[in-house]
């Protein structure tokens, strides 16, 4: 069972309090009506499915209820960074380098 840090509560809690919300930083087009077919399909269905360092959405469902983002190594299950929703996506390559990947 993973340990996850909620940046809103400021605490580390077991995985059972959280739900994973899939890949992070996939923005819904601001004006969907103007989105091209390709852009909309990309938004709906296309995910990178990274083997390695990935940014994911998590929700502290059984806690504060907030969505936040986390950088996780999908191979080792190690979390490398937690940050609040709305904050810019960190440099995953830099994080990977720091983690020795």
């Amino acid at each position: 069972m993973l340990l996850i840090y909620c940046p809103y509560c400021g605490v580390e809690r077991p995985e059972t309090e959280f739900q994973c919300g899939g890949e992070a930083h996939i923005a819904r087009p601001a004006d969907p009506g103007q989105a091209s077919e390709e852009d909309w399909v990309e938004f709906l269905y296309m995910r990178t499915n990274t083997k390695g360092i990935a940014a994911e959405r998590w929700r502290h469902t059984n806690g504060c209820g907030r969505f936040f983002n986390a950088v996780r190594d999908t191979v080792s299950d190690k979390f490398l960074k937690f940050y609040k929703a709305g904050e810019t996506m960190p440099d995953l390559e830099a994080i990977a380098k720091e983690a020795g990947k």
Binding site: Q19, G21, R28, R59, T61, F67, A85, G86
Partner: peptide, 13 residues
């Protein structure tokens, strides 16, 4: 509820 929270928190904060 979860989907409402999702849109509210992450798309239309």
């Amino acid at each position: 509820v979860a989907r409402m929270e999702d849109y509210l928190q992450t798309e239309w904060p």
